[in-house]
Write a protein that binds this DNA or RNA. Structure first.
Lengths: 270, 270
DNA sequence: TGCTGCATTTCACATTGTGGAATGGAGAAT
DNA sequence: ATTCTCCATTCCACAATGTGAAATGCAGCA
C-alpha cells in the first residue's frame, strides 16, 4: 500500500523525462523524442521550448534537432567536446548568417577528414546545397581544412600530413608534396583566411563530384596554441570575387571565430 | 518587439529555476530556497518532491536539506566528491537505521579531523545526542577515525600521524606513541571493526567533554586500496556489550559499507 | 500531381498547479 | 512549565495552466 504521497508536479516530471531521454540519446529530433517518450508532439514542443529558453537544451541549426545544453551535460566525454563547440557556435553562426546573408559551417577534425558539426545552410535565404552534420570533407583541398592546418601546432600538422600521406588516396596527393603544401599554408597565414583549392570543384565523399559553383573563406578557431576547428562563409563564386568578399566580411568571420572560442572557454572554466 | 513566441510551461520553468538555485547554493533548506527563488513554500515542496522522485535532487537525512543529485551535478569538484559519498550513503544508512534501530554516521577525513557528512541520528527512534553535518571528531580516539586509519594505505596513515604529532594537542598524544597505536590498529584489523578509546568519554570539539554513555562500532569504506571514509552504528553502552552488539550487527554494517562504495563507484563510472 | 512523413499551430476542455491560511513540531526565550 | 518564534508540511477553493485530437504547413518523393 504505497502512501498517498506528497503531490507531484506532472508537467515537471515529463520535462525531466524529456531531459533524461536527451541524455540517453543526444541529438534527437522531435519525432525521435515522440517515439521514445510517448509524449504528444504539441506537449513535447512546449516542453522543449521551455527547456531551451532556460538554456538547458539547445537546438542544432542544421536540422533543428535538440541536445542537452552544456549547463547540465555530464562528465565531458571526448565525444561531447565537439558538441560543446557546436553548441557555442550555433548562436554566433546564426547571427553571422543573418548579417552576411550567406551561410556558414563549423568543421572539426575527425580522423583523416574534417567533419561538419554545424551549419546555417538551412537558415540562409539562399539554399546552396544539401548539407548534413557529420559529412566529411577533404583536409588538404578545402578552405576549412587548410585554415585548420595552417594554424594548428606544427607537431599536430605533421601527424595529420603523415596520416594522409600513407592513406595514398588520389585526393590526398598534396600530402606528398610538402614544398607546395607549405607554400599554400604560408599564404593562408599571410592573408588570414583560407579558400578551397582551385582544382577542387566541390562534391563530397560518396557523391559524384561536380562543379558546385561554390567558394568559401575559412578561418581557424584558435584557442591559445590549439585549434579547435574552423568556420567559413560560403557563397556563389559568380557573385563576388574572393578578394571583394574577404574585404567585406573577413573581419566579421574572424570576430565570430573569436567569440565562439571565448564562449567555449567560458563554459569549460565553470 | 518580441515575437508572441511559442507556449512556455511555467511549472517546468520554475522547476528548472529551483534546480539552478540548488546549483548555486548546494545544500539548501526549504526556507533558503523560498527566500532565494521567491516561490511559495507549498509549491517548492511539490517541486522538490518531484525532482527528488526523478532522482535529480536528494535530501540529506541529517537535517532534510536538499542537494542536486549526482545525475546532474557538474564537474566533480573536490568539494563534491564528499557529497557524492554522502548521497550514496543516505539511502543505505536509512535502511540500516530502520533495521538496526540504532543510528549511524558517515564520516570522511577533513584536514586533521574526521568530519560528519551524514547521520541518521535524527531518524533513529532513540534520540541520542545533538549531531550536525560538518562536526569534527578526533582521529585517534574515535571508532570512525581508527577504522579509517587501520585500513587506509600505509603512506597516507604516516602522513596523518605526522600531522597530528606536530599539532601537539593533548588529545593527540597517541600520535606520539607509535607502538601503542600500531597495536590498537592491528587489533582493529583483526576484529574487522573499531570502537572508541575507552578513555574517550565523548563530547565533541567546542563542547565540554562529558560522559555521553555512547559507544559505537565503525568500519571503513574501502574502495580498492583507498578508504573513502567510515561508517558506524551508535548505541547506549548500557544496553549491550560491544561483543554482543558486534555479533548481532557487524555483518549488516559491513554490507552497508560495501553497498555504499559500490554505489559511489557506479556513479563515478558513468 | 497527389502522397507521405514530420514539424508546428489551433482550440475547447478539465486536469493541474497555485498560494493563503491552518496545522504541527522543535527550539529558544521568559 | 509556558509562551513565542521559526520553519516544514498539509489543506483547500479557485482558476490558471497544460493537454492532445485535429487542422495546417511544408518539404521530399513516386
Amino acid at each position: 500500500m504505497a502512501v498517498a504521497g506528497p503531490k507531484i508536479i506532472k508537467s515537471l516530471e515529463r520535462g525531466l523525462r524529456v531531459l533524461q531521454a536527451l541524455q540517453m540519446q543526444p541529438d534527437s529530433s522531435l519525432q525521435q523524442l515522440y517515439v521514445f517518450t510517448g509524449i504528444s508532439k504539441p506537449s513535447l514542443l512546449r516542453i522543449l521550448h521551455t527547456l531551451a529558453r532556460s538554456g538547458v537544451v539547445t537546438r542544432r541549426l542544421a536540422d533543428g534537432s535538440y541536445r542537452i545544453g552544456a549547463t547540465l551535460s555530464r562528465a565531458p566525454s571526448r565525444r561531447q567536446r565537439r558538441d560543446r563547440i557546436a553548441e557555442a557556435a550555433a548562436p554566433v553562426l546564426e547571427r553571422l548568417c543573418r548579417r552576411v546573408s550567406w551561410p556558414s559551417d563549423l568543421m572539426v577534425p575527425a580522423g583523416d577528414h574534417m567533419e561538419i558539426r554545424e551549419t546555417t545552410r538551412a537558415r540562409s535565404p539562399i539554399l546552396l546545397q544539401e548539407e548534413r552534420v557529420g559529412l566529411q570533407v577533404n583536409w588538404l583541398l578545402t578552405g576549412v581544412g587548410r585554415a585548420y592546418l595552417a594554424y594548428c601546432p606544427a607537431k599536430e600538422r605533421q601527424e595529420i600530413i603523415e596520416m594522409l600521406r600513407t592513406s595514398n588516396k588520389a585526393e590526398d596527393r598534396l600530402a606528398r608534396e610538402p614544398a607546395r603544401l607549405n607554400t599554400i599554408l604560408a599564404e593562408v597565414r599571410a592573408r588570414g583566411y583560407a579558400t578551397r583549392d582551385p582544382t577542387h570543384v566541390g562534391g563530397w565523399y560518396g557523391k559524384p563530384p561536380h562543379a558546385d559553383g561554390l567558394i568559401s573563406i575559412a578561418v581557424p578557431l584558435r584557442d591559445g596554441a590549439r585549434v579547435l576547428g574552423s568556420i567559413n562563409i560560403v557563397w556563389l563564386r559568380t557573385a563576388f570575387s574572393v578578394e571583394v568578399f574577404a574585404a567585406r566580411h573577413l573581419e566579421e568571420l574572424q570576430d565570430a571565430a573569436a567569440e565562439i572560442v571565448s564562449s567555449v572557454r567560458g563554459r569549460r572554466a565553470r
